[in-house]
Design a protein around this nucleic acid. Structure first.
Length: 258
DNA sequence: ATGGTAGCGCTGCTA
């Protein structure tokens, strides 16, 4: 069994105790993290090594930052897309490695902010570039997982109340279309394949008690190529990690592959 | 009720 997890930690420095706690009981083999919000120079490689995890991190500053932890081996492949230099001139939104015979990507898709904001165009273009990158990274007949915060709720049942989302980001047709286009490369939303119920969320706004009102969205995914998808047999969101002291606004989710 | 909270880092930006 291989347990593949993804978690937008919303600052690794602020969340390190919660991450340690979660690694201790969830015991993922591979954990993709987003929004570490730190440069590579202070990423706690040694700390995770003591916990049995190899790691690759890509971050420049207090924004973005992505990582992959693995306890089944880790061969670094690329910081950023293949058309990015990974030395600081581009945003740190993707990192790529091979872990125990699985090609793994950890991605943090731009937020978009609003439908009429220039960042929305950037978000859509970034998703197009992600798909182009996948073509160079791997073949969909290989073992591939692309995990992360996509900032898109792909279907109406992935938000708490679609009637309140008219004109809002994360649910617009251009965003959903761009997400589907990435999946059309050869990736399946493995969590949804295994959990058909509506109202299963991975993110809740810090404001207004959204978590306790169950007002969230499902915007984090473990996307799996067919050889991986066929092996997926269990998936869940750990809502307990969204409770208690200093939680991230995202909960971790994982998929177990036989 | 056009707010609210969290993190970073220093005053406003990002989400």
């Amino acid at each position: 069994m291989t347990r593949v997890a993804t978690w937008n930690v919303n600052s690794l420095r602020a969340r390190i105790d919660r991450v340690d706690e979660w690694l201790g009981y969830a015991k993922p083999d591979i954990l993709c993290m987003q929004e570490t919000k730190m440069p590579d120079g202070i990423f706690p490689y040694d700390h995770f090594s003591e916990l049995g995890y190899e790691a690759i991190h890509y971050g420049h500053n207090q924004w973005n930052g992505v990582a992959i932890l693995s306890r089944v081996g880790l061969e670094p492949i690329k910081r950023g897309f293949f058309d990015e230099d990974g030395d600081g001139s581009s945003e740190a939104r993707s990192v790529w490695a091979e872990c125990g015979g699985i090609k793994v990507g950890s991605v943090y898709v731009p937020n978009g902010r609003a439908l009429d904001d220039p960042h929305m165009d950037y978000k859509l273009q970034w998703l197009t570039r992600l798909k182009e990158h996948l073509g160079k990274f791997a073949d969909p007949t290989e073992n591939v997982v692309v995990c992360g915060d996509f900032n898109v709720a792909p279907a109406d049942e992935d938000v708490w109340d679609i009637s309140k989302m008219d004109g809002m980001t994360h649910v617009s047709e251009p965003e959903r279309s761009a997400f589907r286009s990435v999946c059309d490369w050869g990736l399946t939303d493995s969590f949804r394949e295994l959990n058909k119920s509506p109202g299963l969320f991975t993110w809740w706004d810090f404001r207004g008690g959204s978590f306790h009102k169950h007002e969230g969205m499902r915007i984090d995914f473990v996307l799996a190529s067919n050889p991986m998808s066929e092996r997926a047999y269990f998936a869940t969101v750990d809502r307990n990690a969204r409770k208690g002291t200093k939680p991230s606004d995202h909960a971790p989710l994982f998929v177990d592959f036989g």
